[in-house]
């Protein structure tokens, strides 16, 4: 309960700062926020768009959240997401019976995400390389590799600015407006991780390893196996984020500057922090993020330039992420045993 109140307080604070920014530049904050929420929740179509926008963020948020639970700072979701999107799209090139295309694409993309995350785990467990460093580097490898493939190998012959489109039979079917059945993927992933972390021994081990690796080891828990599991599961989730963005949302293709994938991976960090690194909190965080993104254009109609909208979005997201970020820092400080002095 306290956690929810803290988050609500942070939300109010963020909204107030955003309102101040608008007021200082002579815009009407009340009307602008109304436009934002009308644009995101105003009718069924808008709500469907907001939910659809949040689906990949649920998955990248889960990647970061399960990492934190295992004591990691895993920022590799961006690269794994990109790889998942590329593999998901490329699966269209395989000659498969119509009904199998989508499931095979999802399986392959999850495998690719796991493979892309594997070096992170191996480097950490065998060589002690910080996951922060290895994931940052692999993110860039994925980015440039994808850029090469998108521009040179997968591009639409008459449309230089994007790849070919996923064939109709391979897309997630539509539910309403822009929302597709990719919804189920994100929901199931969140519920599965919730069940794993709180109702299964493996999840308990992950959390124990994250809270205090030494105590966990003493209790006979393999911290290394927990870390491996958290990184690989995270890789699969992030890859699915990319896959459903391409297979489950218009225009069912990747733009050649990768802008259609945006920063879904990095945004997942903020989503996880807003959601307190809890799988169900991540659902709420992602929906909130999707709301801000979907409502932005309607705010723009109120004469607010796109740059200011992005600043306001940033302020709100940062302030909502602060409580959890503080907690993480506090935990880190106390859990690292200090030598000497005491």
């Amino acid at each position: 309960m306290r956690v929810v109140l803290e988050s609500l307080g942070a939300l109010v604070l963020g909204l107030v700062i955003g309102a101040l920014i608008m007021a200082v530049w002579g815009r009407d904050p009340w009307a602008s926020y109304r436009a934002l929420f009308e644009g995101a929740w105003g009718n069924t179509r808008a709500l469907a768009s907001s939910v659809s926008r949040s689906l990949p963020l649920v998955l990248t948020g889960l990647t970061f959240a399960i990492g934190v639970r295992a004591g990691l700072f895993n920022i590799g979701a961006q690269g794994q997401m990109i790889i998942g999107a590329i593999v998901g799209l490329s699966s269209a090139l395989l000659a498969l019976p119509a009904g199998f295309k989508l499931p095979v694409a999802m399986v392959l993309s999850a495998l690719a995400g796991v493979l892309w995350a594997l070096p992170v785990a191996l480097l950490k467990l065998l060589r002690g390389v910080s996951e922060v460093i290895s994931t940052i580097m692999l993110n860039w490898v994925a980015h440039w590799l994808a850029l090469y493939l998108v521009v040179r190998k997968l591009s639409d012959p008459v449309r230089g600015e994007r790849t070919f489109q996923v064939p109709v039979g391979m897309r997630f079917p539509l539910i309403q407006g822009e929302l597709t059945w990719a919804l189920v993927v994100s929901l199931l992933a969140a519920l599965f991780l919730y069940w794993l972390l709180w109702y299964h021994a493996k999840g308990y081990e992950i959390r124990a390893a994250g809270l205090n690796p030494k105590a966990a080891t003493t209790a006979g828990i393999s911290v290394r196996r927990s870390i491996l599991l958290a990184i690989l599961l995270g890789g699969a989730c992030a890859a699915w984020a990319g896959a459903i963005q391409v297979l489950g949302r218009f225009p069912y293709a990747i733009t050649s500057d990768l802008a259609i994938l945006g920063s879904l991976g990095f945004d997942g960090i903020a989503v996880a922090l807003i959601g307190r690194n809890h799988p169900l909190g991540v659902l709420a965080g992602a929906f909130f993020f999707g709301t801000l993104a979907t409502g932005a254009a309607r705010m723009g109609l109120r004469g607010i330039p796109i740059d200011m909208i992005q600043i306001i979005q940033g302020v709100i997201v940062v302030s909502m992420a602060i409580p959890e970020a503080f907690r993480l820092l506090r935990v880190k400080k106390t859990s690292v045993p200090t030598k000497g002095k005491s």
Binding site: R45, A46, L301
Partner: peptide, 21 residues
């Protein structure tokens, strides 16, 4: 005249739908 700008191509269709409806 009113105008607005896409924050990313992810938003194209939902923005245009919002404007049209």
């Amino acid at each position: 005249v009113v105008h607005t700008t896409a924050s990313s191509p992810i938003e194209f269709l939902s923005d245009l739908s919002m404007l049209a409806e």
